[in-house]
Nucleic acid binder design. Sequence first.
DNA 1: CAACGAAATATTGTTGACAATCGACATTTT
DNA 2: AAAATGTCGATTGTCAACAATATTTCGTTG
Lengths: 224, 224
Amino acid sequence: MGLGNSPEQTFERRRQRPLVLEVRDELERIILDGEIAAGERLNEAELAAQMGVSRGPVREAARTLAHDGLLTTVANQGVFVRELSIEDALELYDLRALIAGYLCARVADRAERRINADLRRAVTEMARAIEDSDESRYFALNLAFHDRIADAAVATRARRLYLSLGKEVRLLRRRVLCGQSSLRVSNQEHGRIVDAIEAGDVEAARAAGTIHHLNGKTRLTETL
Amino acid sequence: MGLGNSPEQTFERRRQRPLVLEVRDELERIILDGEIAAGERLNEAELAAQMGVSRGPVREAARTLAHDGLLTTVANQGVFVRELSIEDALELYDLRALIAGYLCARVADRAERRINADLRRAVTEMARAIEDSDESRYFALNLAFHDRIADAAVATRARRLYLSLGKEVRLLRRRVLCGQSSLRVSNQEHGRIVDAIEAGDVEAARAAGTIHHLNGKTRLTETL
DNA sequence: CAACGAAATATTGTTGACAATCGACATTTT
DNA sequence: AAAATGTCGATTGTCAACAATATTTCGTTG
């Protein structure tokens, strides 16, 4: 059905993809982009009007986001974007490190050559981005790298969790300061992860994946 | 809070506790008790009528449960109770083991004497239940034991995850066969967890907690 | 008799309206 | 003047009706 690029495409998509999902994505974007500050209330009617839908889908979407930890609900008062405490953020880093280690271990256990090649290539590309001082490119590649691992692990639930925790931690609107040197260190860790995966060393892969993420945590604590 | 036991308590609580939460609990019970078989569709209107509410709250509750992995939604077809594959269940066991280890490690790190005493007592009580061949009592105590650890870890997100994963795995409606001997083994593991926590040995506690849950996994695979 | 197709039915998706509740401001009382 | 109380506007919680979609039924046809 790649033909339907007619004017009524939006209409078509609305039928195939329930409004709730569209609304959810948009709400998520609004929250993660900080368009509504932490602690602020979400006005259902206003948001609904803004998106051109009714309050129903907005409520449903908000409910799921609240369950994801991006919003907090207060009875008869509405939903507020969650204020993430430092302690909460640190716990999130821990959990994410745990899951990441698990994913790496699974990938190492499966040992598929194509994936290994992909990962290795990603690491060299990131190294190039660092030399070019192209931070934004590095971040994009870094994201893709970890996504690739999550995919390759064939662990649906863990993958979902990993992504969800990643979004949740973004509520802490801190810039992780990354000079060129720390990027190099980070990419060395990537290299170690791929080494372990290629070697099929499950426990080494787990450790490398976990440590890599825990280092992100310590980098956060250092900025306090 | 022994005060509000007046006749209009139900009325009060309805106002303080949105319908959506009540509906959610009831839906969860229906699913986990297997009153609707895996793969079956949930009829919104029917359930709403059954609970004496409108479809709105039912829909919202269903969304959150779907997001928890207890239901799957298909556009324009509704929500179905999830059919958990063996692979999914095994992954859930892994994740739960990971989180459990993390929780144990945190408790060991905090090292509060009162908690240690509680846990130790729970272990001896479980031992008594085993000698009395009182399985249901053992299960209740076991649940309380792990809840206590999750509480004591002061890790809100991890605790929520742990509980959520526990519910999710119940979708596999397999009886974990537990003779008296395997209960003894299980409780020995409990003992080891408490030992490590009392000793303040973080890594030992993590390992003990993880292994204890992974043993549950192997017990499952053995029944296949 | 099986296969196909079209009406009929059932169910979900969405909406707008109504009721209940909360916060803020004005008013009254001490 | 300060505290308590009453009222008003705004917002959430809930509902019932409407529109869109999927499933079933039943008649028709090759």
